[in-house]
């Protein structure tokens, strides 16, 4: 017997079936990995820290600018069907609690982000080996992955909220791009941990693998953002009169 949450996750899976949304999560990290490795090999006499240097080349732009936008694209896609035609009526009247419906979407967004992150690290490993790095794979990568994923969940919750309240498919993606760029400025000011779009790049230690991350602050802030934007989304679904298009 499936719970409401299980049914919502299953329904989302059906909506996403045969849709090539995952291709974006494959393509963008590949571009970054290919050119990052190329750049690393071209400047190998300057970049002496082997795996760590390669990581900076792979992650810098991807984590700051493009992963937030990619997550934004996926979240927009998750609400796209509801924003089309009269689908809000069937969504809001389905015999499943609205919170379960929301968590079904959040689960898929997080799942795709985790897969995307795994793909980034897989490419990092393969490119490192192909570049002739014979030293052991850095153990710190586990921490980068875990904290990066937690930061990405915060972005997922923010973007899901934005895509819920904004009917346009494209605008939340533009906001994510702007948020990522603004995150670079905020991180540069030393306030990256307070800003949702910087949590991912800081967790991934993009451009600075030796960064001493305040792990507890990162976790607390990420979870706070997840909690706030999840609550806001569910509240919006419950209280707001969403008109069908």
């Amino acid at each position: 017997m499936k719970t409401s949450y299980g049914k919502a996750v299953h329904a989302e899976r059906l909506k996403l079936r045969r849709s090539p949304v995952w291709l974006a999560f494959i393509a963008l990290p590949m571009i970054s990995a290919f050119f990052g490795t190329f750049n690393y090999l071209n400047n190998i006499e300057l970049l002496k820290s082997e795996w760590l240097s390669l990581w900076t080349q792979h992650s810098l732009f991807l984590c700051y600018f493009f992963m937030p936008s990619l997550i934004g694209t996926y979240c927009s896609y998750l609400w796209r069907l509801e924003h089309t035609r009269h689908n809000w009526n069937s969504f809001l009247t389905s015999p499943i609690p609205l919170s379960a419906l929301y968590f079904g979407k959040l689960t898929h967004a997080v799942w795709m982000t985790v897969l995307g992150n795994l793909w980034i690290f897989f490419l990092y490993y393969i490119c490192g080996r192909l570049s002739g790095l014979n030293s052991p794979f850095p153990k710190e990568a586990v921490s980068w992955f875990l904290f990066g994923t937690v930061g990405a969940v915060a972005i997922c919750s923010v973007q899901l909220f934005l895509s819920l309240i904004i009917r346009s498919f494209a605008i939340p993606i533009g906001i994510a791009m702007a948020g990522g760029i603004f995150g670079l400025l905020v991180t540069n000011k030393g306030m990256g941990l307070r800003y949702p779009y910087s949590l991912y790049s800081m967790g991934m230690r993009a451009n600075n693998p030796n960064l001493a991350l305040d792990a507890s602050a990162h976790l607390v802030n990420s979870l706070t953002y997840v909690f706030i934007f999840t609550a806001l989304s569910i509240l919006w679904l419950r209280k707001h009169e969403i008109s069908a298009n």
């Binding site: 291709l23 974006a24 393509a27 963008l28 571009i31 970054s32 732009f61 991807l62 600018f65 493009f66 936008s69 990619l70 694209t73 498919f169 494209a170 993606i173 791009m177």
Partner: peptide, 9 residues
């Protein structure tokens, strides 16, 4: 939009 993002990248 993904083409646009890839273009930026």
């Amino acid at each position: 939009l993904v083409v646009g993002l890839c273009g930026s990248m």
